[in-house]
């Protein structure tokens, strides 16, 4: 399950439309300077060669180079606030700040949409707002794995 929980690159159209447009040329993976986009390996004729991002391994930093280069507009060239890759869910039972153990602001400090997608409630407790585009940086940096990014692919 965890392996299939990958994100599409920023700006990806809804899953079915994305797959119908993706040429599997791999240009998005080639221009990604953070090396987070991987091409799907294997011989599955429906998925092989399509781009995916696993935030636990390497998250997207919303540089938007991939959506700019995509020749078939499977990745739409949108501003990063509209990347709609997914959305992050914070489990307050695991978060050290919410549990009152230590003050950790890893997710807040690293969020590419800092103070928009993640805000600090009462100046202390991280809260993910509906502005979150699901880049997965917070999931990647969270020391307690309290954050899980749910891909938009699964939402119909």
């Amino acid at each position: 399950m965890l392996r299939s929980r990958f994100l599409r690159p920023p700006g990806a159209r809804p899953e079915e439309e994305f797959l119908a447009r993706c040429l599997q040329c791999g240009q998005c993976a080639q221009v990604c300077i953070f090396e987070c986009i991987r091409m799907r390996t294997g011989f599955n004729p429906f998925l092989s060669g399509t781009p995916e991002i696993s935030p636990r391994q390497a998250p997207c930093f919303l540089c938007m180079r991939c959506s700019a280069i995509c020749p078939s507009d499977a990745l739409e060239d949108v501003p990063k606030e509209k990347a709609k890759m997914g959305f992050a869910r914070l489990n307050r039972d695991k978060c050290t700040t919410w549990k009152g153990l230590i003050i950790c602001r890893s997710c807040f400090e690293r969020c590419p949409l800092k103070a928009t997608a993640i805000v600090l409630e009462r100046g202390l407790y991280p809260v993910i707002t509906d502005q979150c585009v699901g880049c997965g940086v917070c999931e990647h940096v969270c020391p307690r794995r309290a954050i899980v990014t749910i891909p938009t692919r699964f939402v119909t």
Partner: peptide, 26 residues
């Protein structure tokens, strides 16, 4: 029927280039 352009998977030059994309990038 399908959601993906399946004929692309029969392109052997594409597979040739993909081998090196897979190797050097991941």
């Amino acid at each position: 029927f399908s959601t993906t352009p399946v004929l692309n998977q029969l392109s052997l030059p594409a597979w040739y280039s993909r081998i090196f994309q897979f190797y050097f990038e991941q």
